[in-house]
């Protein structure tokens, strides 16, 4: 490879690029076109060029409610993850013993990749009416049949457990880059540990905070297994609703429109947060 022209090296990416175009971009374009079609029961859909599927979403209170539930559940879960995750990430970044550090990373990454189906099963066992939490509450004499399964708080708890490892690992890699000597310098100049943290470490870690919250929010908005299994049949979030429309109701035009609403709201909010934060950050830096 040493002698080849670096301009021609780019050709090596062509197969992978074509693959993405064929199996992601073209299907997305097709689905967008379908979202402008009209639903016709019995024959799937008829060709049209209409915005009525998007209009149906805006006019129907039920689907607005689903989006609203998805938004606040995701926002709350993300916020809790930030509060719980930051100290852990800081602790991991400041751990110097290589063995302990490796062990901590594994302890965070294995739950991250254990699979959402299995994780939801665990929360069903913990939160159910005869579950672990209920047994604990009962043993402490605080009440009987304390179940959070099929409730909104239960979904938030389960979502936090999905997202927290992502938050911790993202924050940790950024905090890793904030040199410990900066804190020490601040403290040797007379800053209290608290001041050194608030005025030096925290501002420098803001890009990580942004990356972590965006990632967690996107994942929460699109969660499938957790709302279905922990939320139960009465708890509706966007991703299961999209699946239901596309795969069960076979209403492709409306399902497609829902999918694009979900994707644009998620990406739109993340981009807005990014822009807002960047502006803040610039002002801070000046």
């Amino acid at each position: 490879m040493g002698a080849t022209n670096p301009n021609r090296t780019g050709l090596l990416a062509v197969p992978a690029g074509l693959f993405v175009a064929l199996f992601l971009l073209a299907p997305l374009a097709l689905m967008f076109r379908y979202s402008l079609n009209r639903f016709a029961p019995g024959e799937m859909m008829e060709q049209a060029l209409t915005l009525e599927n998007y209009g149906k979403f805006l006019a129907d209170g039920y689907y607005q409610g689903v989006l609203w539930t998805t938004l606040w559940t995701s926002g709350l879960a993300t916020l809790i993850c930030l509060v719980l995750g930051y100290p852990v990430a800081w602790f991991m970044a400041r751990t110097t013993a290589p063995r302990l550090k490796s062990l901590l990373v594994i302890a965070i990454v294995v739950p991250l990749l254990m699979g959402n189906a299995v994780r939801s099963a665990a929360w069903m066992v913990v939160l159910g009416e005869k579950g672990m939490l209920a047994a604990l509450v009962g043993a402490l004499g605080l009440g009987e049949r304390f179940g959070l399964l099929y409730t909104a708080p239960g979904v938030v708890i389960a979502l936090v457990s999905v997202l927290l490892p992502f938050m911790i690992i993202t924050l940790q890699s950024v905090l890793e880059g904030v040199s410990h000597s900066l804190e020490e310098a601040a403290m040797s100049l007379g800053a209290s540990p608290r001041a050194a943290f608030v005025q030096v470490v925290l501002p420098l870690s803001l890009p990580g905070v942004l990356a972590g919250t965006s990632l967690c929010f996107i994942l929460a908005m699109n969660a499938y297994a957790t709302p279905v299994l922990v939320g139960g049949p009465q708890f509706h979030m966007m991703a299961p609703t999209v699946y239901q429309q596309v795969s069960k109701a076979m209403n492709w035009p409306f399902g497609a429109a829902l999918a694009f609403v979900l994707m644009s709201v998620t990406l739109g909010l993340s981009i807005a947060a990014n822009l807002l934060m960047q502006r803040r950050y610039r002002r801070w830096a000046e």
Binding site: L24, P27, L28, L30
Partner: peptide
């Protein structure tokens, strides 16, 4: 998102 890409691919 997985659900969005999955729906599109299915169609």
């Amino acid at each position: 998102p997985g659900i969005v890409g999955g729906s599109a691919l299915f169609m």
